[in-house]
């Protein structure tokens, strides 16, 4: 789960079900169990978008108190089995933007093989965090053991896919690998992400007609 791109009365978020479910139910509410909702709806997804879900949820009609904590989650049923997502939360901002101050973190250059994703875990424990900015290089495109090499790599799992990513399926598989990291998931559920693409999201040191390795 990831949460993100906050606006004063809206909240966009996305979530990847683990099956090829087609209809995903979502909610935003004042408590984590989803028994009371401020707004809710459904989103139909399929393999054409890698089963991701994006919702632009308007909670402005919910009489939400500024800075109050709101919860959101997803549920889908596929082949008779119900799947429920972890619950995420964020702090509401009202239409008058009455925040006296905002607390945010900046991260960048997240190379799965090098580890140090514990930084995400640390941020997920900071209660007052309003959002975090990822300034680029959310993923790295290299094949396994290229960067980091076998001396520097801290993970025992083989990088997926094992080759340098170049096709749409490759990029999707690499995002899935990164998003399976528990620390990254914890931060995604804790605070909205404002994400920026740099070069490693597609290839290193790109210029007008090519790139370092191409």
């Amino acid at each position: 789960m990831a949460a993100c791109d906050p606006k004063n009365t809206k909240y966009t978020y996305n979530y990847s079900p683990t099956s090829d479910a087609v209809t995903v139910h979502w909610f935003i509410g004042p408590n984590a169990d989803g028994t009371k909702t401020i707004t809710a709806g459904t989103f139909v997804t399929d393999g054409g978008r890698d089963w991701t879900v994006k919702v632009d949820a308007d909670y402005s009609t919910g009489n939400v108190v500024a800075q109050s904590k709101l919860y959101y989650g997803f549920q889908a049923t596929h082949m008779g089995i119900s799947y429920t997502s972890p619950i995420g939360h964020f702090r509401a901002i009202d239409s008058k933007n009455t925040f006296a101050e905002l607390t945010y973190a900046t991260v960048s250059c997240s190379n799965w093989g090098f580890g140090m994703f514990n930084a995400y875990d640390t941020l997920s424990k900071i209660e007052e965090l309003d959002f975090y900015v990822h300034a680029g290089d959310n993923i790295y495109e290299y094949k396994d053991l290229r960067y980091p090499d076998d001396h520097m790599k801290v993970r025992t799992q083989i990088t997926d896919p094992p080759h340098e990513i170049a096709s749409l399926d490759d990029y999707r598989r690499r995002y899935r690998l990164y998003r399976n990291d528990a620390s990254m998931q914890a931060l995604g559920a804790h605070a909205p992400l404002i994400s920026i693409a740099d070069d490693h999201e597609y290839t290193n040191n790109a210029w007008l007609t090519g790139a370092e390795n191409h």
Partner: peptide, 23 residues
């Protein structure tokens, strides 16, 4: 390795699918 622009297209499509950016 694929055509460079095709590769960039695939990369950005995946980025917008997985990154929480308003479409």
């Amino acid at each position: 390795e694929g055509d460079y622009y095709e590769r960039m297209h695939f990369a950005m499509k995946a980025f917008f699918e997985y990154m929480p950016i308003r479409e």
